[in-house]
């Protein structure tokens, strides 16, 4: 039997990849429901590997490319792409973004209006990443939970993990050295007057904003990136910046209702690249930074391959238990 600590997106994806290969898996989750994993619960749900390539390591782009089809196995994925925009005075930002990313094409005002009628006349040009997608991270977390349970994985909620587990996916709650936390703050709004069908990114030197449609007039707006380990609720300054940027996207968003705000701590290594780390008998899946939904599938696959190679190899197995 393989034991996993943490039922956030990393733990569930790991459980799925292991169970799919026939392993018997038990997950220990200190929280009492999927909602108790703030990094997963407050995520944006963008599956946007090419946009992330603007600042992320090329590895992130490569590992993230398979995430869209992976998630589509068990949860609705909206494949409408990402539209990247900028206010007229920050247009140099868009050129820079285009230079640093791949897999996109320029769209003009006319095409922007066709893609998103609500934005007609507001932006002269944009970048379209047609092959990107988004999902509702909460729905996805629930769907993945049910899927792994269907594969026979036992999830013990409200149960702290034992001292010794095979796989540790607890993010900042693990005691792995070299991890730091990046605080992310977000808001959820209800905007019946503005219909947007794909993820929008608004570039701005200070506050890069994204708006992800969640369906039924609900949109998620995120997200700040603060080098901080503070759990306190979203600050006024951050909310001001996020909502101010949303207002730039469309003034009618000013009439939307803020129905939720939240903050989570993303675990990251010094290079912001996630990895598997062996520590004693435990394999850590950690450092997913702002790429939990994007990269958990690839890391879980690596983990499962590593596990199955090792258990077929008697000597490796003995070494591990010695």
């Amino acid at each position: 039997m393989i034991t996993i600590a943490g039922a956030g997106v990393a733990g569930l994806a790991s459980a799925y990849e292991l169970a799919k290969r026939g392993a018997e898996v038990t997950i220990y989750e200190a929280g009492s429901s999927p909602a108790d994993n703030p990094s997963s619960w407050f995520a944006g749900g963008m599956l946007a590997p090419w946009c992330e390539g603007e600042v992320a390591d090329p590895q992130v782009v490569r590992l993230g490319a398979g995430a869209i089809n992976w998630w589509a196995q068990f949860t609705p994925v909206t494949r409408n792409g990402t539209l990247v925009l900028t206010p007229p005075r920050d247009r140099a930002e868009l050129d820079r973004f285009a230079r640093r990313t791949e897999h996109h094409r320029w769209v003009d005002a006319g095409e922007i209006a066709t893609l998103e009628p609500a934005l007609e006349g507001r932006f002269q040009r944009g970048l379209l990443f047609e092959d990107e997608a988004h999902l509702d991270p909460r729905r996805a977390l629930m769907d993945l939970t049910r899927t792994v349970q269907g594969l026979g994985v036992e999830i013990r909620y409200a149960t702290p993990a034992p001292d010794q587990v095979d796989v540790d996916c607890r993010g900042m709650a693990s005691d792995l050295p070299g991890l730091r936390s990046i605080r992310g703050e977000m808001a959820v709004i209800e905007a019946p007057d503005v219909q947007i069908s794909r993820t929008l990114r608004l570039l701005h030197p200070r506050i890069p904003l994204y708006l992800v449609p969640r369906g039924d007039d609900i949109y998620m707006i995120g997200a700040t990136m603060v080098e901080s380990a503070s759990w306190k609720p979203v600050t006024v300054r951050s909310l001001l910046e996020l909502l101010g940027a949303a207002f730039t996207l469309h003034p009618a968003l000013g009439e939307a209702s803020v129905i939720e705000t939240g903050a989570g701590l993303r675990p990251a290594f010094i290079d912001n690249i996630p990895r598997l780390k062996q520590r004693g008998e435990t394999t850590h899946v950690n450092g997913l930074y702002r790429h939990g939904y994007l990269l958990a599938p690839a890391l879980a696959g690596q983990l499962a391959r590593q596990f199955f190679q090792e258990s077929q190899d008697e000597t490796a197995c003995e070494r591990r238990t010695a």
């Binding site: 991890l179 730091r180 080098e227 901080s228 503070s230 600050t235």
Partner: peptide, 12 residues
Amino acid sequence: RRETAQGSGAGF
């Protein structure tokens, strides 16, 4: 920033 101070951005 204030939140950094309180929550200690110790890692960074």
